[in-house]
Design a binder for these strands. Sequence first.
DNA 1: CGTGTGACGCGAG
DNA 2: CCTCGCGCCACAC
Length: 104
Amino acid sequence: MNQRLSFKSEVITIVKSIPRGRLMTYGQIAALAGNPGAARIVGGIAHFGDTSLPWQRVVNKSGYLGSGYPGGRKGHRKALEKDGIYISGFRAPIESLIWWPKEK
DNA sequence: CGTGTGACGCGAG
DNA sequence: CCTCGCGCCACAC
């Protein structure tokens, strides 16, 4: 089924499915794509995949922003604000914003 | 088929 | 709270 699609394609699909105002971690996306240990792969796709995707909603396990986002972490934060997510510093309160598609 | 690589994750000190 | 180090797996060459 979804195995037909490459892990990369799965990740892209998931990222595009993240609703506004919500965040997901690389580990979650990787797990949803079928590989809980491939969080790094998700990061690689983020940089070379498609910058048009809402990668700003994708953060690491600490809710911390990535390092290669256009404009740096500051640019990333700015993008999150556009999503309605306002944070202080460079870490978002993922504990409240984390989204799990399986929760439905 | 072998090697390198990475916007990560987590345990340990 | 911090830093250090290994594992981890898909993908490009």
